[in-house]
């Protein structure tokens, strides 16, 4: 029963590949959003550290993978790994700044870093293409065999496979003593320090891991669309990631997946139905959810299954 429940989201994801061949770009977008939400979940949901600038790592990953592809290194897997490493490095460098200050000040620092990177990418047009985006990205076939096709088949299966592997890794992580200590810090940092947990060091580790995850998500976007733009670095993306998490349910890995899927589909449908006005409906849905539904969609599912 439990195993069936765990397999369900992945079976749905594979089923969607066959059932909706004309919607593959949307499905890829969901998988990428899910990975981004997953990375935020590790930091916000488990460690309890809220950030408003997580798009910095997503965008950095996107530009690293994109520029690699543009400059003649289009091998996708190594592209992901390099993007992850660069994003992790930025996390490592900025972690002391972000963690130094108190909770609210730390939040402001994440916001500031995100805005800075956005403007830096905008100005560095020689490297990033500025407001026009990064043109001429070429990505080689996955494992030298699966070409990125026009219908987005390879793009979706590739994104889904990466999401799956990183999901399993995240699951290992949150169930380990390390993951337990992150939750302990979220629950009570005072006591966490009093049982010998080096609180700042653990939070820094979570921050770097989340940065690497977001970097991979961004790299996936650049590789599968063969394009990178300032969008990837925008505050909107950071905020949407948080919305997905709250929608799906903080601190549950499946919540991140479900939230990302629900948000992306709602975004897609609402913006098709009323292109000018869709954010209004999204706003209503979010307010209702925040007021009525504790624990997001995962919380609602749990309450239903318990009955």
């Amino acid at each position: 029963m439990r195993i069936a429940l765990h397999a369900l989201p992945w079976l749905v994801a594979i089923g969607a590949y066959f059932a909706m061949p004309e919607q593959l770009p949307l499905l890829s977008a969901i998988a990428i959003a899910a990975l981004f939400a997953l990375s935020l979940d590790l930091l916000v949901g488990y460690a309890g550290f809220v950030t408003l600038g997580h798009a910095a790592f997503f965008g950095l990953g996107a530009y690293v993978a994109g520029i690699l592809g543009q400059q003649g290194w289009g091998e996708p897997i190594s592209g992901l790994l390099i993007a992850a490493a660069v994003a992790a490095l930025l996390g490592l460098v900025t972690a002391p700044l972000v963690l130094r200050a108190g909770e609210l000040a730390g939040l402001m620092v994440t916001l500031g870093l995100g805005l800075m990177l956005y403007e830096a990418a905008n100005k560095a047009a020689f490297l990033t293409g500025g407001a026009d985006g990064l043109q001429g990205v070429e990505i080689w076939p996955v494992f030298g065999a699966f070409r990125f096709d026009l219908w987005g088949r390879t793009a979706y299966l590739y994104s889904l496979a990466v999401l799956f592997v990183l999901f399993l890794l995240a699951q290992l992580l949150v169930r380990s003593p390390f993951g337990l200590s992150l939750r302990a810090i979220r629950e009570n940092p005072k006591r966490a320090a009093a049982i010998g947990i080096p609180v700042k060091r653990r939070l820094a580790a979570a921050y770097v891991i989340a940065a690497a995850y977001a970097g991979v998500a961004g790299a996936l976007l650049a590789q599968t669309t063969q394009f990178a733009s300032l969008d990837a670095l925008s505050f909107q993306r950071s905020a949407e990631g948080l919305l997905m998490l709250v929608l799906g349910g903080l601190g549950t890995l499946y919540g991140a997946l479900i939230g990302a899927a629900a948000f992306t589909i709602a975004h897609h449908t609402l913006s098709e139905a009323s292109p000018q006005f869709w954010q209004f409906w999204l706003g209503i849905a979010l307010v209702a959810l925040a007021l009525l539904g504790r624990g997001g969609l995962m919380g609602a599912l749990r309450r239903m299954t318990r009955r």
Partner: peptide
């Protein structure tokens, strides 16, 4: 809670690849 505290005492709090 107690398992966590013992794990930290034993210096295994940063272990990420297996359960407690």
């Amino acid at each position: 809670s107690v398992t966590l505290a013992i794990g930290e005492r034993e210096g295994q709090g940063a272990t990420w690849w297996r359960g407690a």
